[in-house]
Design a protein around this nucleic acid. Structure first.
Lengths: 352, 352
DNA sequence: TTGATTTATTGGAACGTTCCATTTATAGCC
DNA sequence: GGCTATAAATGGAACGTTCCAATAAATCAA
């Protein structure tokens, strides 16, 4: 039963009394072979414990069915949700995507990309690591491998992008804060080497501008896109002379960090300081207090990315349209009104 | 520069004025070639934009350098932490592990495993999906592919396992609860088709037994190993005639769900109902209240699994020793004393 | 110099598929 | 029965590597 050396189509051929070509045809589900023959062959395949050698096949076929998903931070639940969406569509297309983590490290990303290329991937869905150099994907591009960026993009690149409407999301969130009476705002987390950062910050700024918040009342604190980053942001913000009373966070992770830091200082997120997140990961709903956040339909974006990828592969092109996903603000409990303006139209404010 | 057809070692050979064999040797870093020749060849490699075809190579070499990690639930941050640990060691070994998600679905797992096999993986680290049939890995086993199970195991299988000391962890946690004065305990979540379940439940039961809790005071509620499962467990427990006052949860995810459900009912996790989790994911520390949980050193287990895998591949064996990782209970704020015994010797204190 | 060693390089035969061009069998038609 | 059209099965030449055995070149011992 368990023959030492692994079985090939020749073994199957011998077992079934046909030629290797016939076996190959059966393997590919060709309609050219007589049903009875196919049955015979399939039985032989079972009997010898054959396992298809995709490497050998790709040698001739020139395109594998491997699709890679390159993620910059596996520990961010956001990306897990993205992956889940993608997998849904790939699964129904009968293909298994492989996920690789770059841990936000461009060097590691290089290795991952190289490995994936050598493996002969058919396509790549990538959320590039921070600090990715402009040329990082050139190899892939000249090799004609379809790529789509998900969530993040590179400053100038022709590679199609699937992303939520960051500008609008940030605008909505900021407007919400202002509507609650806040006049001293902050934007927490993220770093300026990310395009998304500028998009979200842009939305924040536009809202401030059109809704009458002066530049000097809009504090911007860069920081890691993680809980830890959020904690740091809040600390530096509260150390200011005129600290903000509300913050839009780059990320839900940052928002969680901010809430945590507030608690540590004996402040209650919501009543004492308004915070809104971005991404609306599942945890947001379950936090205490539940986090108001910009919902981006993460699994939906994942599905979209997968569809685009499939289409690119099928039409053997390397171009596709960008997709900007709709967003909406889901209001929960993390944003109270500004304490200082609570009783007046726009107050001068005393200490909390 | 960007030649249409992809370059092969023949192209390099022509460019560098050597034979394909020489190129192959250079590619493998053989010490047999003259340094100057190597330099010349490496330059040619750059010039033609060559990408190594690992599939072709594997055709001869018979073992790839692909290691797969098959995970049953990517959205559980626990597994992301496990993956991160693994990646640390694989990275320094210069290999890129590919992660695939089975979403707790044995059918999907079958597909994933098949795909990985066809890809010719060198080894597999697996956390099997619920309901995996005993024969699911037979193909891999007879093919001689090294496998190690991480976190979960199959009922009867010779495949080595890397797992925390589940029994001890559960014992510790339960003892803690009893020490707080609780006399009506519960074990929430998990399902009996998981070996881990029995291990953890076993620890729970042993603690109850040796510390004088009667069987009828130890409620066991099976359920999904997720937030949602936790919510359901709490609901059914509180509907009982003599509901428990404390619970050991199968999982941190379950524990989060339980805390959530408590809140929904206006109860405060900790003072009103003690809950302890298992795994100690990073969120545990940041929850409100911070979750008391059994720390299992997840990244450490990941590293361990990776090391074992590397060693198996290197020594071309398919056997290895099981590894049971040390655990310890990290006490935070989610377990108050039993209300009803609050004023008697065993309790520590009153309400904060 | 010559032969024996060592050092570098090379051609050729795999590896397990696919796919094209053939061959062989089956059926259809007059 | 002879012919063509169709259906089913097949042999051989790729595909891009590795590795062995063999050659060629350089070094050494005599």
């Amino acid at each position: 039963m368990a023959s030492r050396a692994k079985a090939t189509i020749f073994d199957i051929a011998r077992e079934a009394g046909v030629s290797k070509s016939t076996v190959s045809l059966v393997l590919q589900g060709s309609g050219l072979i007589r049903p009875e023959t196919a049955v015979k062959v399939r039985k032989a395949i079972e009997d010898v414990g054959y396992v298809y050698n995709r490497g050998a096949a790709n040698l001739r076929k020139a395109h594998s069915n491997v699709i890679g998903m390159v993620i910059n931070d596996l520990t961010n639940p956001f990306f897990a949700e993205l992956a889940v969406g993608m997998e849904r569509v790939f699964q129904s297309a009968g293909i298994v995507p492989f996920i690789a983590n770059t841990a936000e490290n461009p060097v590691r990303q290089e290795e991952v990309l190289k490995s994936l290329m050598e493996q002969g991937v058919a396509g790549l869905i990538v959320s590039p690591a921070r600090g990715t150099t402009p040329g990082a994907f050139r190899r892939l591009e000249t090799a004609g491998v379809p790529i789509v960026f998900a969530m993040r993009r590179l400053p100038e690149s022709r590679i199609p992008v699937i992303t939520p409407d960051n500008h609008r999301g940030a605008y909505l969130a900021t407007a919400h804060l202002i509507g609650k009476g806040h006049r001293q705002l902050a934007f927490f987390g993220g770093s300026s080497d990310l395009v998304v950062y500028h998009e979200r910050l842009g939305g924040f700024r536009e809202a401030c501008e059109t809704l009458g918040i002066a530049d000097r009342d809009a504090l911007i604190v860069e920081g890691e896109t993680s809980r830890r980053g959020g904690i740091a942001c809040l600390e530096t913000a509260l150390a200011m002379a005129e600290p903000p009373t509300a913050a839009l966070c780059f990320n839900d992770a940052v928002a969680f960090g901010v809430m945590l830091a507030l608690r540590k200082r004996g402040l209650e997120p919501g009543p004492d300081f308004a915070v809104v997140g971005f991404d609306d990961v599942v945890e947001a709903e379950h936090y205490m207090p539940a986090l108001t956040s910009v919902a981006v339909d993460t699994p939906g974006l994942g599905e979209r990315a997968a569809h685009v990828m499939l289409k690119m592969i099928q039409s053997r092109t390397t171009r596709a349209e960008d997709h900007i996903g709709a967003v909406n603000l889901v209001v929960r409990e993390s944003c109270g009104p500004d304490r200082r303006t609570r009783n007046r139209p726009s107050g001068t404010g005393g200490p909390a």
